[in-house]
């Protein structure tokens, strides 16, 4: 599903050029659950942004479902992104002014789903995430675990083929963390491809394969399953 070859990304300031990704190559198959690990500053988040079509690489190739997307402009990337990719962040990134229902509904609005269908689909996903009873609450009224469940619900409501998770348990205690990991595993088992950046060896064990990075390069790759 995803194939990157010799992917490069630089950050330039006036005087120095930092290499964030250095000719990075790997492949993630449809239905796979991959974990990316490495110390701070190794390029994990940069990689995730490029994979999530939020950023464009400076060099190399990125095939998404067999299509070269490395040269896509912002409009095309956004179009591809909203139909295919869901995001889960460490800090949940829910919109404080919107209720649980409205937060989850948002991606459907942007993909032009009709109101009646939106309601149905949001309710279905909230049931699945077991937070239906909280649908009228606002993010600040929820626990961290509940907020992340809402974030996951929002990520999957559009039935994306790929979920990108950036340290999804980073702000959660272990029991809430495990709940979120279980959710991701369930989604993966139902067919969604997942790529997760994490610092946690414990979380990484939920994946099929761990890609370890250092200084923008792949160091090792352990297949767990």
């Amino acid at each position: 599903m995803i194939k990157i070859t010799n992917l490069e990304k630089y950050y330039k300031t006036e005087e120095v050029q930092t290499i964030a990704l250095n000719k990075l190559s790997f492949e993630v198959k449809q239905g796979e659950f991959a974990a990316i690990m490495g110390p701070s500053g190794c390029g994990k988040s940069t990689l995730l942004n490029i994979l999530g079509l939020l950023d464009d690489p400076d060099g190399g190739s990125y095939l998404f479902n067999g299509i070269e997307v490395a040269g896509y402009n912002e409009r095309k990337r956004a179009q591809l992104r909203k139909h295919n990719i869901g995001f889960v962040f460490q800090s949940f990134n829910l919109i404080d002014e919107l209720s649980v229902f409205e937060n989850v509904e948002l991606p459907l609005i942007y993909t032009g789903v009709k109101p009646a269908e939106r309601k149905e689909r949001v309710h279905a996903v909230l049931e699945k995430m077991q937070i239906m009873h909280r649908r009228k609450h606002f993010p600040q009224q929820l626990s961290g675990g509940q907020q992340q469940r809402v974030a996951v619900a929002r990520a999957v409501v559009n039935n994306p083929k790929l979920i990108l998770a950036d340290e999804p348990t980073g702000n959660l205690d272990s029991s809430n963390g495990n709940e979120v990991m279980d959710l991701l595993t369930e989604l993966n088992e139902a067919g969604t491809t997942i790529i997760m950046v994490t610092h946690s060896e414990h979380d990484a064990k939920f994946s099929h394969r761990i890609i370890r990075m250092l200084d923008g390069q792949k160091v090792t790759e352990n297949v767990l399953v």
């Binding site: 956004a78 869901g86 990134n93 919109i95 948002l106 942007y110 993909t111």
Partner: peptide, 16 residues
């Protein structure tokens, strides 16, 4: 700013 970032990530276009 942050809210706009989130909205864009989950699919909002520039026009939105």
């Amino acid at each position: 700013r942050k809210e706009i970032g989130i909205r864009k990530v989950i699919g909002a276009s520039t026009t939105n």
